[in-house]
């Protein structure tokens, strides 16, 4: 761990010293990474200002335009009620991404806090917390999220909460491991030697130095959370049908997949592209850190 942290610090310094032009040049050598960033930025755009990307409304149906195949006018085709599927995907980004963000924030916030307490307190507190974490890890997160949603009731917010709760354990485990590694460092001992209190050491030294791995995990977790949110939406635990949501869009088109395949495959493919892009970005982030 020591080596990794040192390397990380060195990498950062070198990064700042490099001229911006050089960094841009490096980016052009990674076209897939650039494309991934583009995809993510466009999808964030969909979520923030859907009206800029499509002239159709997500609910406006045209009964005479039922199940039109993809064309220049309707990029993803239309569904049974003649609603433009591209528009529904664009507007669905807001539902799905908000839920994802909320889920990752819950998991990150609670998980980091729990891991910090366990790692820093040590002893019986650590053992107790880790055994509870073991239990959460023993139940597959999709299953746990399904149970939580069934208790809370079906809605997109509850999906977010459920996905967040089911990923707390992995954050807590990574944070604890980092804290345990940082606590034994010389600078922490030096801080104690200088008379800094436990709380001061924790806030000033342990937390900032432990966070980098957890943030890397959060980046990776965004892709996983999008998938989890969409999977729960697909199973029908999310927003009620008229509302556009990615998983639900695929589920709605699924009944007609034999005759009108685009209705579920195109929104699903858009979802897959977004998840692949976030994965690509988070792995590049991890590689930068390793160097």
């Amino acid at each position: 761990m020591t080596v990794e942290l040192d390397a990380l610090a060195a990498g950062r310094r070198a990064g700042f010293a490099r001229p911006i032009a050089g960094r841009l040049g490096e980016l052009t050598r990674q076209p897939i990474l650039v494309a991934s960033w583009l995809v993510v930025l466009v999808v964030i755009g969909w979520a923030v200002a859907p009206g800029l990307f499509t002239s159709y409304g997500p609910y406006a149906g045209d009964a005479s335009a039922s199940f039109l195949p993809p064309s220049a006018e309707h990029w993803f085709g239309t569904d049974r009620l003649g609603r433009d599927l591209f528009a529904r995907s664009v507007y669905g980004a807001q539902t799905t991404l908000t839920a994802t963000l909320l889920a990752v924030l819950i998991a990150f916030g609670v998980g980091t806090l729990v891991g910090l307490i366990a790692g820093f307190a040590g002893g019986i507190v650590d053992t107790a917390v880790m055994r509870v974490i073991d239990v959460f890890l023993a139940i597959p997160s999709l299953l746990l999220a399904m149970v939580v949603v069934s208790v809370l009731g079906y809605s997109t917010q509850n999906i977010a909460l459920a996905v967040g709760i089911s990923s707390i354990a992995s954050f807590a485990r990574v944070m604890r491991a980092q804290v345990l590694a940082v606590v034994t460092q010389d600078y922490v001992k030096a801080a104690y030697g200088l008379g800094v209190g436990r709380l001061g050491v924790m806030l000033r030294h342990v937390v900032p130095n432990s966070l980098s791995s957890v943030i890397a995990l959060a980046a990776l977790e965004i892709g996983t959370a999008v998938l989890a949110v969409a999977s729960l939406g697909f199973l029908g635990y999310g927003a009620p049908p008229p509302q556009p949501e990615w998983g639900l869009l695929v589920a709605e088109g699924r009944d007609y997949v034999a005759v009108h395949p685009w209705a579920s495959i195109l929104p699903g493919a858009a979802l897959a592209v977004v998840v692949i892009a976030t994965h690509r970005i988070s792995t590049s982030y991890r590689k930068d850190h390793r160097r």
Partner: peptide, 28 residues
């Protein structure tokens, strides 16, 4: 990384579409 990124429900629907509805190799 691609394998974990594609939602299971999408790959399932794609399989159905290609191998059962188009090619008719397997029951749906």
């Amino acid at each position: 990384s691609g394998a974990v990124s594609v939602p299971v429900f999408l790959s399932g629907i794609l399989m159905l579409q290609i191998f059962s509805f188009r090619l008719g190799w397997f029951p749906a």
